[in-house]
């Protein structure tokens, strides 16, 4: 479904990604793991047009998307969340989630002005869907709050609702449970399981190994910008290079 070919990214001469290639298969959860600074966030920034890759290609359903603008990539059906939250702080929680339906809303000025009845009907349906998405993440009662005043865990879940509400073909999640408490982590984990069971394709960056091992069909391991291993969770767990680069230090700190 999504293929990276020799993707590289330099920041002022310093390589953050070198020649990373792998594939995300439809209906699967692919986990991307690696120690801090490995280049995971940089990778999905390059995939979503937030950053321009220095070289290499990203193919989505066979078409190169690496030269497209971020909004065009989103319109191909790729949604994402950010590690350090990118909500619309001044908008209400409901409006934040509604923006996740931009690709379906159609924002022609003339159409918006004419306010045809069938459009009004469609807008009502979109609002209902946004409210349902908020309910799924337990935020239904905060729909009218400005996003800026929410607690961290709630903000994180608003972003998840925004990324999933439009049924995108591919969802990229950058550390969805980082900073959440145990109860919130369990609730988000539950939602990710539901997404997986519903056949969604996910690329999941996460340091929570429990979650990764339970959810992932395939694990890709990044270290210092290079792919050092990939395979099933069980395979990766046994890989000595991974243990050395990543799991070892995680267990030491855990």
């Amino acid at each position: 479904m999504l293929r990276l070919e020799q993707l590289s990214k330099n920041f002022g001469g310093l390589p953050a990604l070198s020649q990373v290639s792998f594939e995300v298969f439809p209906g699967q959860v692919t986990a991307l793991i690696g120690p801090n600074g490995a280049g995971k966030s940089t990778l999905i920034n390059c995939m979503t047009g937030v950053l321009q890759p220095s070289s290499g290609r990203v193919l989505f359903r066979g078409a190169a998307i690496s030269s497209l603008a971020a909004h065009q990539i989103a319109r191909c059906g790729i949604a994402r969340t950010f590690q350090n939250l990118k909500l619309f702080p001044r908008l209400s929680v409901l409006d934040n989630v509604l923006t996740g339906l931009t690709c379906e809303a159609g924002s022609s000025m003339v159409m918006a002005m004419l306010r045809l009845p069938y459009l009004r009907h469609r807008e009502r349906r979109l609002r209902l869907r946004a409210l349902e998405a908020l309910d799924r993440f337990g935020l239904g009662d905060k729909a009218d709050w400005p996003a800026a005043v929410l607690a961290y865990g709630d903000k994180k879940r608003v972003e998840l609702a925004r990324a999933t509400v439009g049924n995108p073909q591919l969802i990229l999640l950058d550390e969805p449970v980082a900073g959440l408490n145990a109860a919130e982590t369990a609730a988000v984990g539950e939602q990710l399981h539901l997404l997986r069971r519903a056949g969604h394709t996910l690329l999941l960056i996460e340091h929570d190994m429990d979650l990764v091992m339970k959810l992932a069909d395939q694990v890709v391991v990044l270290d210092s910008g290079q792919k050092i291993a990939s395979g099933t969770p069980a395979e990766v767990r046994r890989n000595p290079r991974v243990l050395e680069a990543y799991l070892g230090c995680m267990e030491a700190t855990a």
């Binding site: 603008a69 065009q72 931009t102 809303a105 924002s107 022609s108």
Partner: peptide, 30 residues
């Protein structure tokens, strides 16, 4: 227009956070 139409929502979104607006598919040019 700004508070009741989809295009108005897009405009408020761009004003609030342009990166986030781009990744949900809002064309900044329009």
């Amino acid at each position: 227009f700004f508070y009741r139409t989809p295009l108005g929502l897009s405009m408020r979104a761009v004003a609030s956070n342009s990166t986030a607006a781009a990744v949900v598919g809002i064309p900044a040019g329009r």
